Amino acid sequence: MNKNKKNFLICGLTGWCLEILYTSLWSGINHDGRLIGHTSIWMFPIYGTAALIVPVYHKIKRWPAIFRGGVYSLGILSGEFLSGSLLKKFHACPWDYSDARYNIGGVIRLDYMPLWMIAGLIFERILCRRKH
């Protein structure tokens, strides 16, 4: 399997796991002791596109983590906006942020930027770890 396909699969699976963990913790915060997490099959290819972090990382690897995270966050928000808008046209978007204060089109939340920064840096760590 070539490196790009492998990275896509790793990102898809990692994204699914992070989303299930996040939604499980959120259900706990909402006093649901079952800690049920969830995701959608649509999220796998969306998270898989995080593999695009690799070429970006090679251009910005000397930048401080906060700036790299900011770049990743903007890229993730852009991808979320594009994919969410497309899925919404087919009534297939698995998320709806319309009720959130800082939403754009119901498909992105600007207050999630710090979470996407962290997610981007996690993907970077997984995909671009140094070979020893």
Rank of each mutant, 00 (worst) to 15 (best):
L21N: 04
H38K: 10
H38W: 14
D111A: 09
T39W: 05
L87V: 09
G48K: 06
L87Q: 11
M1R: 15
R109Q: 11
L77N: 08
L77G: 05
F67A: 11
W16Y: 12
L86W: 12
W42Y: 13
P55W: 07
A51C: 14
I10S: 11
Y102G: 02
K88F: 04
L74D: 02
L127S: 01
L74N: 03
D99F: 06
Y112R: 00
I53V: 14
Y102V: 05
E19C: 09
L110M: 09
Y112Q: 05
S85I: 04
L18D: 08
I29S: 02
E80A: 11
Y22P: 01
I46N: 07
I53F: 09
S85N: 09
E124N: 00
L9I: 15
R62V: 03
G12F: 08
P55F: 08
G33I: 02
P64Y: 03
V54F: 02
S40D: 12
M113S: 13
G105R: 07
C128G: 00
P114A: 05
Y97G: 07
I36C: 08
Y102M: 13
Y97N: 08
I41Y: 10
I10Q: 14
G12D: 09
S83D: 06
L21H: 04
L35V: 00
I20S: 11
A65I: 12
K61I: 03
I10G: 10
M117D: 02
P114V: 00
G12W: 06
A119H: 01
R101S: 10
T14R: 10
L87W: 08
G75K: 05
S78M: 13
W116A: 04
S73C: 15
M1Q: 14
T49M: 11
V56K: 02
R62C: 03
F8W: 15
I53G: 02
C11M: 15
G120T: 01
S27K: 13
L74R: 01
Y22F: 15
P64N: 10
W42G: 06
Y57I: 00
L86F: 12
W116T: 07
N2A: 14
I29P: 02
W16A: 11
S73D: 05
G84M: 07
W116P: 04
